[in-house]
Design a binder for these strands. Structure first.
Length: 892
RNA sequence: GCCGAAGUGGCGGAAUGGCAGACGCGGUGGUCUCAAAAACCAUUAGGGGCAACCCUGUGUGGGUUCGACUCCCACCUUCGGCACCA
C-alpha cells in the first residue's frame, strides 16, 4: 500500500528543523505570568554548563520532564518549565585558570552551546526566563539574601578550624570533604584555622526534620536527610574537675549509665586540654595532639583501628557517686560533635570497653544480664540488655524509658539537663575564591563588621587579570586594592571589603524562586509571581544532590517564610531522581602502584581502583583483545560521551526521546553500549509514519460529529480497535503521571500494532463509511498521544491533517470508559493452584455461573477423578481455584 | 561494619498476592525481489512428546498461603549511601 512519494518518507531531519524553527519563532514555549488555568511548575536541577556540552546522560532527566511538562500543558495547565545556569563555582574557575580565560565569557559560551543542544532535542523550555547565577542582576539578590540572613542572626563569622584543601587552596565545608579528601580534586584535606562566614542552618534542624513528613520525595532521600540532621536525645552533664573550678560538660545519650562512668575522654582539640595537663604528662600529651593533627581524616575515621589515648594527669568527679575518675584525650572523640567530651562507660559502650581494657581502667557494671556477672568476666560491652544493679534506679530495665526517668532525676538533682543534639553542622558559606558572589560585608576599624547597604548592591566582582588563589588562604579579591578599599557605610572612615565569596550552594538555594519573575530589578521576585507559581510541583535531578543542595534550599525557603517573603515552607512538593547512564568503556588493568599515582592532569580519566580508561594513543598501541571494558559514568574525561546532537543527526531527536523513555524505568541505571536502541526507536517511528500515511487518505475531518451514531453498529474488529485506542489513551496518561514512561511507550507500540493489523485487514478494499470514522479517530488521537513524547513528528502529522498550530495547544483527549471496557474477560481455572484451563466470559457473569463452568470443564473433571472438592477459591474477574483433597480411605 | 535499592529468557525490561516473560532488541523460518536491504507475516524461556499436551523455571535455602517474581526468615551477589556521633 505504501508508495514512494516524498511526503511519505519520514524525513526526520527536515521535520525537526522545520518545527524547531516554528516553535522558536512563534514563542510557543513562552509562559504567561498569569492565567486562569491552574499552574504547574516542572523543574530540573539547573546545571553547571561545562565545555563538554550535554551528553545523552543529561537527557535521561531533561527528556522525561519535558514529556511531563508537555503533557500537563495539554491537560490544561499553565506550565512553567524553565532552565538556567549554575554558573559560579570552582569548576568554572579552575577551567578558566587552565585556559587563561575569563570565566564569565567562558560560561556564556558554554551555556549557549547547552541551549543549542537542548533545543535540538526539542525540550520546551521558556528561554525568556533563562537565568545565569553569575550575572550581577542575579547575584545582586543572592547578596541581598545574605544580608537578610545576617539581619536575622543567621549569618555569622566563625573562627573554628576548617578543612583546608592544599590543592584548591581553599576552605571546604564538612559536606564537601569526602572520605577525608577534597570532593573536587581528591587531595587529602588538612585542618587550618581561618575566619569564615557560616549560615546557622542548625537553628532550623528540627523544622528541616519535621518538614520531610509533608513532602512527596523518595523515601531513600528523606532517610538520608534525616540521618544527615542526625537528631539524638540525651543529656548534658557537668563533671567538676578535682581540685579546680573547671567543669567538663559532656553530652550523652545514655545518662542512665552515669554510675558506670570510670573515666572521661576529651577530643585532642578540646580547649580544656591545655589546663588539665599536669607537668609530668605534658610531653606525652603534646606528642599525642601533634600526632592526631597529622593524621588525616581518613586515618582518624577508620572504625576498626585500635583505640589510643593519653592520660592528662587530672581527675574529674563523677557527679552521681563522687568517684574520682581519670581524664584522657583520644582521637576517637571528635570536637565537632556534642561538646567534644564524653564520659566513658566501658561496661556499656564498646569503644570505651576496648579503651578501658587497653589502659587497665576499672570497669563498673550498671546493667547486668545475670546476677553472677562481674566486670572481670565481661567479654564485650552490654549496650542494650540487662537490669540496673546499682544506684537509685537499681532494678530498672535497660530501656529508653529508664533513660527518660534518669534525665528527669538529673534535672531534679541539678546535675544535668535533657538536651537534643544534632549531627548537622552550620553551613560554611565562605570561599577564598574569585568566581562567586562577593559577600556584601565591610570591615571597619571603628564599627567592626558592617553590612553593605542594600541600595549599594550589587557588590560587583571586579574584572581581574589574575584570579589564581593567593596561596595564603585569602581570596584573589584580597589582591585587588580597588576592590578592597572602601569607606565604612556607618562612619565614613576608610574600611576594607570582605574578600570571601559565597559558595555555589547559595545561588542554587533560591533560583527556583527567580524563575517566577526573572527580570525583576526592584526585588528578587514579586510576591504575586511567587504566590502564583511556587512551590515547585515537580522537581527532578540526580540523587547525588540528595543532601546538600536539597537541604540548603529547604533551609533558605524556611528563612524566607519566616521573613514573610513567601507563603510556603517547603520548596519542592514532589521530587524524583533519575537513574544514571553508564557507558561501556574500554580500559586496561593497572598495577596498584600506578593506580595510586595522581599522575598528570591531562590523563585520560581518574583511575578506578585497578583500572584506567584507555587513552586515544593506547587504543592504537594496545591490541583489542587486551582491552578490558567496564561500565562507568559518561564523562568527557573518560572519553565515552555520546551527545544528543549526534543521535539527533543520525536517528532524529524524536527517536532519541523515545529511546530514553523506553529503555528502562526513570529511576533505573541505563547501560549504553551502542545506538541499537535509538535505531529501534527510529524504526518504530518509521513504522508509525507508514501506517499513518497508508490510512491518511481515509481521514474525515468531521468524524467527531458522525462517530457517536455508528457506535452501536460496530463489528468485533472495529470495536477491538476502538477499545485498544481508548485503553492506550488511559494507560499512557496514567503512566506519564506516574513516571512509568517505559510502559507508556510500550502501550503506544501496542496500539500501533493493532492499527497495523486493522490496516492489513482492509487490504486493498475501500473502507466503509464507519471504518473511515474509526480511522479518523485513530489517526487524530494517535498524533495527540504522541505529542508529548515525539513532538516534532506529532506537529508534522497534525499539520498534514490540515490543522493549524501545534499539538501542544490541543487538549489531551479524554478516554471513553465504555469504549475502553473489555467485552470478554479471561478467568483462569486452577486446580490446587496450578493453571489447568481458561474461560472466556462476559465481565458481568455471576460468580456461581463461573464456578459451575470451572467445575464443568474437561481439564478439571479429569483431575477430579477419585478426589473430592475441598474448597473453591474465587477471585472476581481473575480466577477460580479448585482445591482438591484425596478422598478419605474407605470411601473409595 | 551499618543503612538503602536491586537480582526475571541470548539482551533491555513487563507483571507488586492470582495466566511469569507485555513491549522492544537479537535469533529462526517465510512473503516480496534477479538478488540484497527495507518492509510485511509467523515463530522464539528450557526440557520431553508425532501430537493434543506434560514437566521444570523469576539469585540460593527455608517458611506463610488455596495460590508467591511479589509477603516473612536466613544467606549469596551487584550497585548506591554512610561510617568511632558519645
Amino acid at each position: 500500500m505504501s508508495d514512494d512519494r516524498a511526503e511519505n518518507r519520514y524525513d526526520f531531519r527536515a521535520i525537526e528543523q522545520k518545527w524547531q524553527q516554528i516553535w522558536a519563532e512563534s514563542g510557543l514555549f513562552r509562559v504567561p505570568d498569569h492565567s486562569d488555568r491552574p499552574k504547574f511548575y516542572a523543574l530540573v536541577f539547573f546545571p553547571y554548563p561545562s565545555g563538554a556540552g550535554i551528553s545523552i546522560g543529561h537527557c535521561k532527566n531533561y527528556i522525561p520532564l519535558d514529556v511531563v511538562a508537555r503533557f500537563k500543558r495539554m491537560q490544561g495547565y499553565n506550565v512553567l518549565h524553565p532552565m538556567g545556569w549554575d554558573a559560579f563555582g570552582q569548576p568554572a574557575e579552575n577551567e578558566a585558570i587552565k585556559q587563561g580565560r575569563n570565566p564569565g565569557e567562558m560560561v556564556s559560551e558554554y551555556a549557549a552551546n547547552y541551549k543549542r543542544q537542548l533545543n535540538r532535542v526539542g525540550i520546551s523550555y521558556d528561554w525568556s526566563r533563562e537565568i545565569n547565577s553569575s550575572h550581577p542582576d542575579y547575584y545582586r539578590w543572592t547578596q541581598w539574601f545574605f544580608l537578610l540572613l545576617y539581619r536575622r542572626g543567621l549569618a555569622y563569622r566563625g573562627t573554628a578550624p576548617i578543612n583546608w584543601c592544599p590543592q584548591c587552596k581553599t576552605g571546604l565545608a564538612n559536606e564537601e570533604v569526602v572520605a577525608g579528601q577534597c570532593w573536587r580534586c581528591g587531595t587529602t584535606v588538612e585542618k587550618r584555622p581561618m575566619p569564615q562566614w557560616y549560615f546557622k542552618i542548625t537553628a532550623y534542624a528540627e523544622r528541616l526534620l519535621a518538614g520531610l513528613d509533608t513532602i512527596q520525595w523518595p523515601e531513600g532521600i528523606k532517610m538520608m536527610q534525616r540521618e544527615w540532621i542526625g537528631r539524638s536525645e540525651g543529656a548534658e552533664v557537668d563533671f567538676p574537675v578535682a581540685g579546680s573550678n573547671d567543669t567538663i560538660r559532656i553530652f550523652t545519650t545514655r545518662p542512665d549509665t552515669l554510675w558506670g562512668a570510670t573515666f572521661m575522654v576529651l577530643a585532642p582539640e578540646h580547649p580544656l586540654v591545655e589546663r588539665l595537663t599536669t607537668p609530668d604528662r605534658r610531653a606525652e600529651v603534646t606528642a599525642y595532639i601533634q600526632k592526631a593533627q597529622r593524621e588525616t581524616e581518613v586515618e582518624r575515621q577508620a572504625t576498626d583501628r585500635v583505640k589510643t589515648g593519653v592520660f592528662l594527669g587530672s581527675y574529674a568527679i563523677n557527679p552521681v557517686n563522687n568517684q574520682k575518675i581519670p581524664i584522657y584525650i583520644a582521637d576517637y572523640v571528635l570536637m565537632g560533635y556534642g561538646t567534644g567530651a564524653i564520659m566513658a562507660v566501658p561496661a556499656h559502650d564498646q569503644r570505651d570497653f576496648e579503651f578501658a581494657r587497653k589502659y587497665h581502667i576499672p570497669i563498673t557494671l550498671v546493667y547486668r544480664t545475670d546476677a553472677h556477672q562481674t566486670s572481670e568476666t565481661l567479654q564485650q560491652a552490654i549496650p542494650d540488655q540487662g537490669t540496673m544493679c546499682l544506684g537509685p534506679f537499681a532494678g530498672a530495665p535497660n530501656t529508653r524509658d529508664t533513660v527518660r526517668r534518669v534525665i528527669q532525676w538529673l534535672e531534679e538533682q541539678g546535675l544535668g539537663r535533657g538536651v537534643v543534639n544534632y549531627r548537622l553542622r552550620d553551613w560554611l558559606i565562605s570561599r577564598q575564591r574569585y568566581w562567586g558572589a562577593p559577600i556584601p560585608m565591610i570591615h571597619c576599624a571603628q564599627c567592626g563588621i558592617v553590612p553593605v547597604p542594600e541600595d549599594q548592591l550589587p557588590v560587583l566582582l571586579p574584572p581581574v587579570e589574575k584570579y589564581q588563589p593567593t596561596g595564603t588562604g585569602e581570596s584573589p579579591l584580597a589582591g585587588i586594592p580597588e576592590f578592597v578599599h572602601t569607606t565604612c557605610p556607618q562612619c565614613g572612615a576608610p574600611a576594607r571589603r570582605e574578600t570571601d565569596t559565597m559558595g555555589g550552594f547559595a545561588c542554587s538555594s533560591w533560583y527556583f524562586l527567580r524563575f517566577a519573575d526573572p527580570h525583576n530589578d526592584r526585588e528578587p521576585f514579586s510576591q504575586r509571581a511567587v504566590d502564583y507559581w511556587l512551590p515547585v510541583d515537580l522537581y527532578s535531578g540526580g540523587a547525588e544532590h540528595a543532601v546538600m543542595h536539597l537541604l540548603y534550599a529547604r533551609f533558605w525557603t524556611k528563612v524566607l517564610y519566616d521573613a514573610g517573603l513567601i507563603r510556603f515552607e517547603e520548596p519542592f512538593t514532589r521530587l524524583r531522581n533519575q537513574g544514571m547512564l553508564l557507558a561501556w568503556t574500554p580500559g586496561r588493568r593497572v598495577s596498584a602502584a600506578e593506580a595510586g599515582q595522581t599522575g598528570d592532569e591531562t590523563d585520560a580519566g581518574e583511575p578506578i581502583e585497578d583500572w584506567k580508561v584507555l587513552k586515544p594513543e593506547e587504543r592504537l598501541t594496545i591490541p583489542e583483545d587486551q582491552w578490558e571494558y567496564r561500565w562507568v559514568k559518561m564523562s568527557k574525561s573518560l572519553r565515552n560521551v555520546v551527545t544528543p546532537d549526534e543521535m539527533a543527526e543520525q536517528y532524529g531527536a524524536d527517536s532519541l526521546r523515545l529511546y530514553i523513555l523506553f529503555a528502562a524505568p526513570f529511576e533505573e541505571t541505563v547501560l549504553w553500549k551502542d545506538a541499537g536502541g535509538v535505531e529501534a526507536a527510529n524504526r518504530f517511528l518509521n513504522r508509525v509514519w507508514r501506517i499513518w500515511h497508508d490510512l491518511r487518505p481515509h481521514y474525515r475531518d468531521d468524524w467527531r460529529v458522525h462517530l457517536p451514531a455508528t457506535r452501536a453498529g460496530l463489528n468485533a474488529d472495529e470495536r477491538r480497535l476502538r477499545r485498544k485506542l481508548h485503553q492506550t489513551l488511559r494507560k499512557l496518561g496514567e503512566d506519564i503521571e506516574n513516571f512509568r514512561f517505559n510502559t507508556g511507550v510500550a502501550a503506544l507500540m501496542e496500539f500501533t500494532n493493532e492499527l497495523s493489523a486493522f490496516r492489513n485487514a482492509l487490504a486493498s478494499t475501500t473502507p466503509t463509511a464507519t471504518q473511515q470514522l474509526l480511522i479518523s479517530e485513530s489517526l487524530e488521537t494517535l498524533v495527540l498521544m504522541m505529542a508529548p513524547v515525539t513532538p516534532h513528528m506529532a506537529d508534522e502529522l497534525w499539520s498534514q491533517l490540515g490543522k493549524p498550530g501545534s499539538t501542544l495547544e490541543q487538549m489531551w483527549p479524554a478516554y471513553e470508559p465504555e469504549a475502553a471496557a473489555e467485552e470478554q474477560i479471561t478467568i483462569v481455572v486452577q486446580v490446587n493452584g496450578k493453571v489447568r484451563d481458561r474461560l472466556q466470559v462476559a465481565p458481568d457473569t455471576p460468580q456461581e455461573a463461573i464456578e459451575r463452568m470451572a467445575l464443568d470443564c474437561e481439564k478439571v473433571r479429569a483431575e477430579l477423578n477419585g478426589k473430592q472438592v475441598h474448597r473453591i477459591v474465587s477471585v472476581p474477574g481473575k480466577l477460580v481455584n479448585v482445591v482438591l483433597r484425596e478422598s478419605a480411605p474407605g470411601l473409595q
